[in-house]
Computed example of a mutant assay.
Amino acid sequence: MDINKIGEYIQTLRKKKGITQAQLGDRLNISYQAVSKWERGEALPDTLLLLDLAIILETTVDNILNGGERLMNFNKKISTKDIKLGIDNLSNIGNLIGKDNTIYSGMVEGINSRMNIDLEDCFSDPYKKEALVVEIIVQNLINGDYVDISDAQSYLQYDHWKNMVSKYANKYGIK
Rank of each mutant, 00 (worst) to 15 (best):
N4P: 05
N4F: 10
K5R: 13
K5Y: 11
G7Y: 11
G7F: 05
Y9W: 08
I10L: 15
I10S: 10
I10V: 15
T12H: 14
T12Y: 14
L13A: 04
R14P: 12
K16G: 15
K16D: 14
K17M: 11
K17D: 07
T20I: 14
T20N: 04
Q21M: 15
G25W: 04
L28I: 07
L28R: 00
N29Y: 13
N29V: 06
N29S: 14
A34V: 15
S36F: 03
K37D: 14
K37R: 15
K37Y: 12
K37G: 04
E39W: 02
G41H: 09
E42M: 05
L44R: 10
L44V: 01
L44I: 04
L44W: 07
P45C: 11
D46P: 05
D46W: 04
L49I: 00
L49V: 02
L50C: 04
D52W: 03
A54M: 03
I56Q: 05
I56C: 07
I56D: 09
V61E: 09
V61I: 13
N63F: 10
N66P: 02
G67V: 03
G67Y: 11
G68C: 06
G68R: 07
E69M: 12
M72A: 14
K77Q: 14
I78V: 15
S79H: 10
S79W: 10
S79G: 11
T80S: 03
K81E: 14
K81Y: 13
D82P: 07
I83G: 00
K84Q: 03
K84A: 05
L85Q: 12
D88I: 13
N89C: 11
L90V: 09
I93N: 07
N95E: 06
I97F: 10
I97C: 04
G98Y: 07
K99T: 09
K99F: 13
D100S: 12
D100A: 13
N101S: 06
G110Y: 12
G110N: 11
I111S: 03
S113R: 07
M115A: 09
I117A: 05
I117C: 02
E120D: 11
E120Y: 09
C122A: 02
F123L: 02
S124T: 12
D125Q: 06
D125V: 09
P126C: 02
K128A: 01
A131F: 01
V134A: 08
E135W: 08
E135R: 08
I137V: 14
V138F: 02
N140E: 10
N140T: 01
N143T: 00
G144H: 09
G144T: 06
G144F: 07
D145Y: 09
D145R: 00
Y146E: 00
Y146D: 04
V147D: 05
I149S: 08
I149V: 15
D151W: 02
A152I: 03
Q153V: 15
Q153P: 00
H160F: 14
H160K: 07
W161A: 12
N163Y: 02
N163T: 04
N163W: 01
M164D: 05
V165R: 02
V165Q: 02
Y168V: 03
I174L: 07
I174N: 00
K175V: 05
